[in-house]
Design a protein around this nucleic acid. Structure first.
Lengths: 337, 337
DNA sequence: CTGAAAGCGCTTACAG
DNA sequence: CTGAAAGCGCTTACAG
């Protein structure tokens, strides 16, 4: 391991002062002959500036890095979101830290504090829903905070959300238009904001259609595919089964697909899932879904972030990204056939 | 934006020297009464150490951060790999930068140089296959380099790979065991190492089975689903179509699935895909795949990385992570039925 | 315009 | 053990 050359080395080789090297490195023209000598020394030594030292002394203290805390970077939804943020950051020469909280408030806090200790310029957080008052201190210390996918609890900052309630409501009305009134709702953990929003969309859409809510058709706290499959089988074994299924999350949708197929019910029960799935269009019937747009969420939150970093002032903004119903067959099955 | 409190502020409030604060922050015991005074001042001010400054002066110059350059963080394979690295890094209090090269050597280089300029301790790279001699300088400067998913071109460092050739060979033998001799191979861009390896596995497996290679059944440079669907339709429209399809990548598999279904051939032509897919088991027939283990790749590369950072010496190591054939129906269809 | 000096927020010899 | 001083690799007033 060789010692990395420093500005001092460059200055010595070029026969100029440290200040002159710094100015050349920072693009300040100065005397052309000196600039050229410095550039030559830089090339010879293979010098590259230490951004951490540069950042330490610089007046604006900007590190050209941002941190993103999501529930799980391996989840395709959050991976697409990360990519959206990264693409926007790249256009500004900003690099992206990524971390997974696994919905654990303690891990969220560790990640956030790790990022701020490394002096990120901005921090994009998918809040896990715990006490987020600790973020106040990060904010006061200068970190530009944004929430994405879910709003904060105590903190009110720029936030980008999917239209969860609206997307589910569209799905309910779509099923109703195909003749359904007994629509079961399978939802995730209610401590997650998006789960609560989707349930709200379900209730409000039914109310708007003057359909009384049958609470026995609402099954919550379903957090994985296996649980979803069990719940689906249970619902379909009833003497008065639902004629349609609304699955409010990816893994739930997958579980329901398996359960319906194993009971040969996939041509007899309507099904709409929230979140799109690879191969959903290759199944028979294709799975009708309400698709979110995670990379758009990422881009939007990135745009807001860099606007703030460019010192846009004003009250916190909230952006709702629309969802899209994609009919593929399963959502267009009628109540009896 | 309030100025972040510094060690100097803590020292002033606690009535001790800067050195004492530094020692307390770094866990050096010292006089208990002083340590307590310092801790109180830290709590009152909400002081948190600036890691970038700490790193600058520290003897080992370690930043507790690593950088990961993959082709695309939004690709589920690379997202799982990222998660594997992150999980291992977290156990050491190390944070992870992530970046997407989109297979572009220039973007790869920009990302790498951005990470090293921020003095990451380690750098995990999925090399895009261009000239990687620039990495030599990064390595000499002290960055611990590792390759994952693909080996480097000029540089020989610790590398973690999937058993691409072996996985494809297993698939060929599996199809052969079910009676196939005319097995078409659809491969991705041959400038990508994994694509070449998979083709090699195909050729070697056929040779091992004493089946002459029919070059007209090999279709390469297929880079997306649409192209794969077209190639599939073209192959199946021949007077002597293949009886089995081997699709060497995720998007190719998806394209082939669509093409076979649109021609009602999915129950008549055998099909094995490389890389697992969500819902592959919900299709009829289920799609037989050779599954990679990306999170295991991530963990393995993380393990190697931290061993090196703990100053393990010795020659570069190469780890091959096995793949798994998962029979689900499509790969068990016979040549004529 | 350039260069010498101070300083960013820390850690680390060194003296007491 | 503690504290004063030097220094990590830079940037930034400031003097010439």
């Amino acid at each position: 391991m060789v010692r990395q050359p420093t500005m001092k080395d460059v200055a010595a080789l070029a026969g100029v002062s440290l200040s002159t090297v710094s100015r050349v490195v920072n693009g300040d023209p100065g005397r052309p002959d000196l600039a050229e000598k410095v550039q030559r020394a830089i090339d010879v030594l293979g010098y590259r500036r230490d951004m951490t030292a540069s950042n330490l002394r610089r007046a604006d203290r900007t590190s050209a890095s941002v941190g993103l805390v999501v529930a799980d970077v391996a989840n395709p939804f959050f991976a697409a979101l990360l990519r959206g943020v990264e693409d926007l950051a790249r256009t500004r020469g900003v690099l992206t830290y990524a971390g997974s909280s696994d919905e654990d408030p303690d891990r969220e806090r560790e990640l956030v504090q790790g990022f701020t200790a490394r002096r990120v310029d901005g921090l994009v957080i998918v809040p896990s829903g715990g006490d987020d008052s600790y973020l106040l201190r990060e904010q006061q210390a200068g970190a530009t905070l944004l929430f994405v996918d879910r709003p904060g609890v105590t903190l009110n900052v720029d936030t980008v959300l999917s239209d969860n309630a609206g997307g589910i409501a569209t799905a309910v009305r779509h099923l109703h238009a195909h003749g359904h009134r007994r629509i079961a709702f399978l939802g995730d953990l209610q401590r997650i904001f998006t789960s609560r929003e989707r349930l709200r969309g379900y209730r409000e859409a039914l109310a708007g259609l003057d359909i009384p809510v049958d609470e026995s058709l609402i099954r919550l706290e379903v957090h994985n595919s296996q649980a979803a499959a069990e719940v689906t089988r249970e619902l379909m074994a009833r003497s008065d089964p639902p004629t349609a299924l609304l699955t409010a999350q990816n893994l739930i949708t997958i579980g329901a697909i398996h359960a319906l197929r194993s009971r040969q019910l996939h041509h007899g029960v309507a099904h709409v899932g929230f979140d799109d799935l690879v191969l959903a269009d290759a199944l028979d019937p294709g799975i009708t879904v309400v698709a979110q747009n995670p990379s758009s969420l990422g881009e939007r939150v990135g745009t807001l972030l860099f606007e703030r970093l460019d010192s846009v002032t004003g009250p916190p903004r909230r952006i709702i990204v629309p969802t899209t119903l994609i009919p593929r067959g399963s959502g267009e099955i009628g109540p009896r056939q």
